[in-house]
Design a binder for these strands. Structure first.
Lengths: 110, 110
DNA sequence: GTGAACTACCTAGCATTGCTGAGTACTGGT
DNA sequence: ACCAGTACTCAGCAATGCTAGGTAGTTCAC
């Protein structure tokens, strides 16, 4: 059994990564670090890299290899037009869900 | 590819069903109907039944067969102690996620 | 009385997603 | 030489929701 958060992250993580990239290009290691800083300390590195490969194949992001001063070359991702659309869609879906969930939570108090 | 909502529902649906049951016992068909009324019109019947069987096996809910006036006998589910704990945990996890997601959304506006 | 529609439940197989646990490779400090 | 930190990849697994069917009982129109 995965943890509660693991299951809730399904579908959400893609949106979060796209949102991070909407803020500017970034490479995988950096994105993982940002997620950890946000409080998602349990997000596995491998998960993020796998996700990045998926969204690159779907043309949601563009990738470019860049040399790094301290380590192997980085793969820098930036949000593509299709990814921007997908991100907007994500926020809509998220709001839809969040509204109803909040209602359920409030309503359940009675 | 599943829809955005489908992926977001992963993990959330269990919490929603537990929340509905926290409001009082209900049977599968009724729970499905309530979810549809809430706006989740695309939630498949089979999904809900499968979920109910899962959470019954995990002792999150108790099940009892009841005769129905208009159709086959119903299986009425009610929240068990373990389910109540799980529901509380769910809301905590949900709030954790929602807070950070909202922050990401706001922050991304700059 | 036959068929449609609604009530009520179940199942096998699939697609997607995140995690585990490993490996590769480059740099810098000790 | 060794280890930590940077940076990426991959195979196999676990959990979840959907598809697409099936079974059964009741009610009502035709």
């Amino acid at each position: 059994m995965g943890s509660q958060l693991t299951e809730l992250l399904k579908g959400t993580l893609e949106g979060m990564v796209l949102a991070v990239l909407a803020d500017g290009p970034a490479h995988g290691y950096e994105i993982t670090a940002r997620l950890r800083d946000m409080g998602f300390s349990e997000v596995a590195e491998g998960t993020v890299y796998a996700l990045l490969i998926r969204i690159e194949q779907r043309r949601l992001v563009d990738a470019e290899k860049m040399p790094s001063a301290k380590g192997p070359p980085r793969k820098v991702y930036s949000l593509a037009a299709e990814g921007r659309r997908r991100l907007d869609e994500f926020w809509q879906t998220w709001n839809f869900l969040a509204e109803r969930l909040d209602q359920l939570h409030e309503g359940g108090m009675t």
